[in-house]
Each structure stands twice: as C-alpha cells, then as structure tokens.
C-alpha cells in the first residue's frame, strides 16, 4: 500500500547554500500519527514546512521527491499546490497567540477556512460554533466575537486546532503545538488532538522534541538529526530497541519522575560531535 505522504531523499538549502535537509526519507500512512523528533536545528520545522509547501523565503528544496496522495507535489504548479492547503493539508503552529491575526475576530479567522469549502456565511457561523464546542471552548458564541488578545494561549491553540480539523484534511502537520503552552494545558491540548484525530482518522505529522509526547500520542516515529532521518519505526519498537546510538542516548536522556535517584543523563557530547563530523563529511562528498 502506498503511504499518504512519502518524502524521498529531500534536500533543502538556505539562501547561502547551507543545507538544512540532507536527503530525508519519511513515510506517513493514512490515519497514522507520526512523531518527528530531534534536537533544535535538526530540520524538523523545515521538513514540516517543505511538506506543506510554505518554506521561509529563500529556502529551496534542491533535490528529492514529495509524494502526497499519489501526486508529486514538488512538480505541481503553485496554484494546484496551494489548492492542497486548506483542503488536504492543514497545519498547527507552535505559538498560538502569534498564529492568530491580532486585528481580526475569531469568527472571521475560523470562517475563512469554512468559507473556502463553499459554505455560506450562515452555515460557516454555525459550523464555527460547532467546532469551538468540539475543541471544548466554553461559551463559544462569545469567543467567536472576541479578538485573540482577549483569549489565553491555550484557547488560541484550541482555535488553531479547530481551524486545522475543520478543513477536514487528509494530513495535519502539527509543528510543536504544545511547546509554548503551560504544562497543564499541554496535556489537555494533546488529549484533544488525539481525540479529534481518532474521530476523523486524519494522518498527523507531529513535530516535537518531547519524547514523552511521542510515547503518549504517536503510532510511528522518525528521529531527525542534521537534516537526515537516523531511525524510523513504530514507537513501541524504537522505545524498546533503539537501533541508532543517538536514539538510545535521547531515550536515556528522558527525565524519569518515577526514578528520581537515577539523575539526568544528557546526550553525550562526543556522540553529537561525531554525528556532526559525519554530516560535514557527507556534505563535502555531496559538494565534490
């Protein structure tokens, strides 16, 4: 069976030519929740944005293929590629307060998604109310008329989540959706995403640096380092038998609240340095 999303040997570079993705392979099946983990600067967000086709200005995909629902999206003209967004692919961003437009009411921002699906104004309002209830917002009618600065970060993120699911997409890319939230709110938001995902059966590419979140939420996972996937497999498998030394070190570095006497075990510097040295070697080989 062909996966919903298949990323093959994708390379991307910053404006100066510095590589950020160095031949990434990734496959996400329909309905699967796929965790994408790795340290900061490893290319997680770049990969997520490459898949959605919304890379920052100047960053280019230089090689590889991104297949989505049987189409080669990199070969699509910009208009068709844009047509995927809001219909087949949706995104949840890291900072919910910044993701909502400060000068527009919640209703307008939520309705924008619904109107794009051809709903009338009145239908869009009803559906928007319905979605706010589904993301467990109290007093949804009042919230619709409010501006983002009147809402808490958790509420803003619920609204962004509502927008993503309201598109009824096949794939949702969640880029660290809980990182900017309070710990207590994080858990609620994760449960909400999991619940909505189960109800809709949408595939989720969940970008995070928190392995605890991966363990709770994901079916499969990929470990990204320096723009390459080091390891990929089911969450249970990878947690039980990590194949790569870096994955093992990441797992060992997870703080355990149930065993406080164990202490903290950061990823060994020597290992990270060795991996970066290998990366530099590979870059030189690729350039030659």
């Amino acid at each position: 069976m062909t996966p919903l999303l298949r990323v093959e040997q994708v390379r991307a570079a910053l404006p100066g030519g510095r590589p950020v993705l160095r031949g990434v392979d990734l496959a996400v099946a329909a309905g699967e929740v796929h965790g994408l983990v790795g340290e900061s600067g490893g290319g997680k967000t770049m990969l997520a944005r490459a898949v959605a086709g919304v890379l920052p200005e100047g960053v280019r995909v230089t090689a590889g293929r991104i297949g989505f629902a049987g189409q080669d999206v990199l070969a699509l003209p910009p208009r068709s590629r844009r047509a995927l967004l809001g219909h087949s692919i949706a995104m949840i961003l890291q900072n919910p307060s910044a993701a909502l437009n400060p000068v527009l009411r919640v209703e307008r921002q939520l309705a924008e998604v619904l109107r794009a699906q051809g709903r009338s104004r009145a239908e869009a309002r009803d559906t928007a109310l319905d979605w706010l209830e589904r993301v467990q917002i109290r007093d949804p009618a009042r919230v619709l008329g409010q501006y983002p600065h009147e809402l808490s970060g958790g509420m803003c993120q619920r609204i962004v989540i509502a927008m993503a699911f309201a598109c009824q997409p096949q794939l949702i890319i969640a880029d660290e959706p809980t990182t900017a939230l309070d710990v207590t709110v994080q858990l609620e938001v994760l449960r909400l995403i999991r619940q909505l995902q189960r109800e809709s059966g949408v595939a989720v590419l969940f970008v995070t640096h928190d392995l605890g979140v991966v363990a709770k939420l994901c079916d499969r996972m990929s470990v990204l380092f320096a723009g390459r996937v080091l390891e990929c497999g089911s969450v249970a498998e990878v947690f039980a038998r990590p194949a790569h030394a870096y994955t093992a070190a990441l797992l060992a570095a997870m703080p355990r609240y149930d065993e406080p006497e164990r202490g903290l075990h950061p990823v060994p510097t020597a290992l990270v340095e060795q991996l970066w040295a290998d990366t530099a070697e590979a870059d030189r080989a690729a350039a030659a």
Binding site: R82, A98, A99, N101, V103
Partner: peptide, 26 residues
C-alpha cells in the same frame, strides 16, 4: 514575517487575499 501570515498561507489563501485581508489591516 508573522505566524498569522504563515497560517493564512496554510489555509490556502491566495497571495493577494493573504496580503489584503491579513497583512494590510495590521
């Protein structure tokens, strides 16, 4: 450069719509 413009893009808005409806009011 703001996140809400990225989200507008992700919603599938055309560059013109994103510019006029989201960037201009700000």
């Amino acid at each position: 450069r703001q996140d809400y413009m990225l989200l507008a893009q992700v919603k599938g808005l055309s560059p013109n719509a994103a510019l006029l409806r989201h960037a201009l009011p700000n």
